[in-house]
Simulated assay, not measured.
Amino acid sequence: MKQKLILLAVFIAFISNGCSIEDDSANFHFTSLEIVGAELPESFDYNQTYEISVNFIKPNSCTNYEGFDVVKDSLTVRNVVAIGTVRTDIDDCTEESIEQTASFIFKVIYTDPYTFKFYTGDNNEGEAEYLEVVVPVNKR
C-alpha cells in the first residue's frame, strides 16, 4: 500500500510540473483580425446548415489566420471575430495588408431573423466596431 501511495505522489508531481500552461517561452500571441466583408444568403431556411464566407485582413507576414470565434450574444445575435496568431520570434515581418477568405458552418435553429456582427476593428476611442448583417429565416 505504501508503494502505491509513493507512485501516486510521483505521478501527481510529474503531472503538475509537466502540464503548466504558463509558459514564458511562447513565441506567439493571439489577435483579432479586421473583417472587411462577408457572404451570407438573402435568407435562411429553418433547420438548414450554411457555409458563411468571411473576408479579413492579415496585417503582416508574421500573422496567421487560426479560425473564427462565433459567440451567441442573444437568441439570434452572433458576434463573429476572425482570430489570428502573431509570431513574436521573427524580426523581419513584411508590413503589408493581405486579404484572405475563410468560412465557418452555421446551423439555423431559430425562426427569428439572425443578426451577425462581424468585428471590423476598434475606432479612435478604442470602441469595437462591427459590420452588421441581418438574415431573415424562412419558416416552411
Results as ranks from 00 to 15, higher is better:
Met1Lys: 14
Gln3Asn: 14
Gln3Cys: 09
Leu5Cys: 15
Leu8Met: 12
Ala9Gln: 02
Val10Met: 10
Phe11Val: 05
Ala13Lys: 02
Phe14Gly: 15
Ile15Thr: 06
Ile15Gly: 05
Glu22Ile: 07
Ser25Glu: 05
Ala26Gln: 07
Ala26Val: 06
Asn27Ser: 14
Asn27His: 12
Leu33Ile: 03
Val36Met: 09
Gly37Arg: 01
Gly37Tyr: 03
Glu39His: 09
Leu40Gln: 06
Leu40Met: 10
Pro41Ala: 04
Pro41Arg: 02
Glu42Ala: 10
Glu42Gln: 11
Asp45His: 09
Gln48Thr: 11
Gln48Tyr: 12
Ile52Phe: 04
Ile52Tyr: 06
Ser53Phe: 04
Ser53Gly: 01
Asn55Trp: 10
Lys58Trp: 07
Lys58Ser: 11
Pro59Phe: 10
Thr63Lys: 01
Lys72Glu: 15
Lys72Asn: 14
Asp73Ile: 11
Asp73Glu: 15
Asn79Ile: 06
Val80Met: 08
Ala82His: 00
Ile83Met: 11
Gly84Arg: 01
Thr85Trp: 00
Thr88Tyr: 12
Asp91Arg: 10
Thr94Cys: 04
Glu96Arg: 04
Ile98Phe: 13
Thr101Phe: 06
Ala102Gln: 14
Ala102Trp: 10
Phe104Asp: 08
Phe106Met: 04
Phe106His: 11
Phe106Gln: 06
Ile109Cys: 01
Tyr110Phe: 13
Thr115Phe: 01
Phe118Lys: 00
Phe118His: 01
Asp122Val: 15
Glu125Thr: 08
Glu127Trp: 04
Glu129Thr: 07
Val135Glu: 03
Val137Cys: 03
